[in-house]
Computed example of a mutant assay.
Amino acid sequence: MLITTYCHKSIIFGGKMTNIRRLGIVVLISILIVSFTALPSCFAASKKKTVGFSSVGRFSLAFIAGEEYLKRYSEANGWNYISAIAENDAAKQSQDIDDLVARNVDVVIAMAVDSKAIISSIRSVHAAGIPIVGYMRPQDPNASVKFDAFAGQDTVAQAYDAAMAVSKMMAADGVKAKDVKVLHVVGDPKDENALKRKQGFENASKELGWTIVSEIVCDAWSLDKALTGATNALEADNSINVALLASDYLWPGVKTALQNQDMLKKRGEKGHVYIASQDLFPVGVDDIKAGYMDASTVLDMNGMAVTAIEMVKRLFNGEKFSETTTPKQFNWMSGTTITKENIDTEKNLWGVEFHPDK
């Protein structure tokens, strides 16, 4: 009514703009502004979430596959996705994560270069009020601060299962446990998964009565150290008939050492060295089919990514995790052990999906 009265007065004065009419327009505009700002929040554009992934590097095809899965599932949820590549350098990873925080990501997903060094980054991300999710590589289990959520694999069981699969083959081939001499190829000791696989292989060897005659440690997952160490071990003891590998990633170095000693034989051929490995890289796929490698337990890059993204979604919804929630704060998947018998029938193998020949 007030506005109508002011408009009426402007007509009386020949349509000229009066102070009263100006006041009426100001009041009208003010009412409109208040009305629009009071609209329900559902009419306001919501901020698109951003996932920031800190990767160890792209020197391993497994890491490339993991990065692709995380990107794929982040974008499927309508989130932005950015990544930073640490090139296997813990100091660079720390800076990368600081940069992701500075770019205002809503969550950090981290594949740790170093299980101890990542602790300071967890602290800095938490200090910024941002959650951090671990992927594939766990932090030091004795750390006082932890990932808000973690998606990984039981790598003790991974190695144990591969050794047990090979033991059944050897028993079927008439090889007695007392005659088994093992070359143990250990991965990077800064990687918690490498340490757990070492434990898994040692548990199996003790249970089976195998003798580990040589152990080599491949710092930074060095192929050169795998080649040099395996060469020295085979030259020192050519009765070695089993090699336990921390990952197929190291297999090319060990394979070359076997070739150089004329010890690379297929199963069924005289002098075959039984190979139990991990992860099922494309090279593992090829050599299991060819008969040179006997077993490799899958590192489930896809399954871990699915779990990590599901936990991110729940964190965005305000959920918190502990060891009593479902899912738990730390989730450990199991992997299928692949042999020549099941390699053509098993589904969702990342080493097949990302095979260079595809």
Rank of each mutant, 00 (worst) to 15 (best):
T228K: 02
L227N: 00
Y292R: 05
F13L: 01
I212D: 05
N331D: 10
D286I: 11
I82H: 15
I338W: 01
G291E: 10
E68Q: 14
A65T: 14
Q199H: 04
R103C: 05
E67S: 06
T256I: 07
I82C: 11
I33A: 04
A44D: 13
A143K: 11
V283A: 12
A163L: 05
A204I: 11
L23G: 04
A236I: 13
A162P: 04
Y160K: 09
T339S: 09
S83I: 06
S55M: 15
P282A: 13
V182R: 03
V298N: 00
E269C: 12
M136I: 10
K289H: 06
G66E: 01
A65W: 07
A243M: 03
N348G: 06
S144W: 01
N88Q: 08
E353H: 03
D219T: 15
T256A: 15
G303M: 09
S296R: 11
S322D: 14
Y73N: 07
T336V: 14
P327V: 07
V180T: 12
V56Y: 00
L349K: 08
K116L: 05
Y160V: 01
L2G: 13
D173F: 02
C218T: 15
Q93A: 07
L234K: 05
I118W: 02
V285N: 03
D357Q: 08
T339K: 02
G209Q: 10
V166S: 00
K47L: 10
T231M: 00
N331V: 09
V166A: 00
Y249H: 12
K255M: 06
P131H: 03
A236R: 15
K255Y: 07
D106S: 09
V125H: 04
I31F: 13
D224M: 07
D262Y: 13
S247E: 05
S41L: 02
A308W: 02
D286H: 08
A76Y: 11
V133C: 09
G66I: 01
G303R: 06
R137S: 11
D224E: 05
R21M: 15
A143P: 10
I130F: 02
E192G: 12
A151Q: 09
R103S: 07
T50V: 14
I288Q: 04
M293R: 07
L299Q: 12
D357T: 11
I109C: 04
R267W: 01
I118T: 13
Q158P: 00
A62Y: 13
T50Q: 13
S334N: 09
V101H: 00
E235P: 03
S30H: 09
Y69C: 08
C42Y: 05
I275L: 03
V273T: 02
S41W: 00
A171I: 10
Q259A: 02
F13N: 06
V273W: 02
A295H: 11
A204Y: 12
V56P: 07
S322H: 07
K16G: 05
F321Q: 06
